[in-house]
């Protein structure tokens, strides 16, 4: 077994007295694609956000490529966390492009500011990644001039331009009009084919089934069941999983 890219150990996260994550253990290996599914409020997004420390764990550890986010004394040093985050790209549901920058400037910004690349070099890299996501013609457009699908593809290019080893997708297609979902999923699928290590939170069950190496079903802050897509979708072991998958795949059916 190759060494895990992400190791999560007994991760707990509470907001005030509300416990969102109740002791999660999770390893993600090189090149693996893990898809987290579950009802809203199950803690799946919070788990994803803990993987790059956008949420600090209340207890437990998150390691990336063997490096713990917390330092030896258990504290989260900002510089250390920021440095580790550069290895992890993240794509958000609401895109979060920088509105005052054009597409290409969005992709350049962190390369220049964080990676300390020259502007020329950063622009070249940015143009390459924008081409890769099919937006060569839209480089000088502002986010306000782009469709949702285009925005999300710029956001993916922006994350990729940092040359991360892991990509996180937090409901990357949930805010999109149905006809724009495909273009974003296509880009994600291409990344998968290139062997990128990825963790996705998604409501697109068919896509999850098709792309995932492993599906994790979460409910009420805990992992209920995990396994190969074919097993989990076709023969779920737990009653809760069955119920959820049935509801998502047949939303018109009456609740059991």
């Amino acid at each position: 077994m190759p060494k895990p890219m992400i190791e999560v150990n007994q991760l707990h996260k509470s907001f005030g007295s509300l416990e969102i994550l109740k002791g999660i253990d999770l390893d993600v290996h090189q090149g693996e694609i893990v898809v987290i599914i579950g009802p809203s409020g199950s803690g799946k997004s919070t788990l994803l956000r803990c993987l790059n420390c956008l949420e600090l764990p209340t207890s437990g550890t998150v390691k990336v490529e063997g490096e713990n986010f917390a330092d030896k004394s258990g504290r989260y040093n900002e510089k250390r966390v920021a440095k580790l985050r550069t290895e992890i790209g993240m794509v958000f549901q609401s895109f979060n492009l920088f509105p005052m920058m054009t597409a290409v400037e969005n992709v350049m910004a962190a390369q220049v500011k964080i990676r300390r690349k020259s502007k020329e070099e950063a622009r070249k890299t940015a143009e390459n990644y924008l081409k890769k996501v099919g937006l060569a013609e839209r480089m000088d457009h502002y986010p306000s001039q782009l469709s949702g699908g285009q925005k999300q593809r710029v956001a993916i290019a922006r994350a990729l331009a940092m040359e991360p080893h892991i990509m996180l997708f937090d409901e990357a297609t949930s805010a999109l009009d149905p006809e724009l979902v495909g273009e974003v999923l296509k880009v994600i699928r291409e990344l998968a084919d290139e062997g990128m290590t990825m963790v996705l939170v998604t409501h697109e069950m068919r896509f999850a089934e098709e792309i995932g190496d492993r599906i994790i079903f979460m409910d009420k802050g805990a992992v209920v069941e995990e396994g190969k897509p074919s097993d989990l979708f076709n023969a779920p072991k737990h009653e809760r999983t069955k119920l959820f998958i049935n509801q998502v795949l047949h939303p018109e059916a009456e609740k059991v």
Binding site: L54, E78, G89, N96, L97, R158, A159
Partner: peptide, 13 residues
């Protein structure tokens, strides 16, 4: 989300 996007890219607060 603006701050979060920046943090995710490796910016400090």
């Amino acid at each position: 989300g603006q701050t979060e996007a920046a943090l995710a890219l490796g910016y400090t607060q």
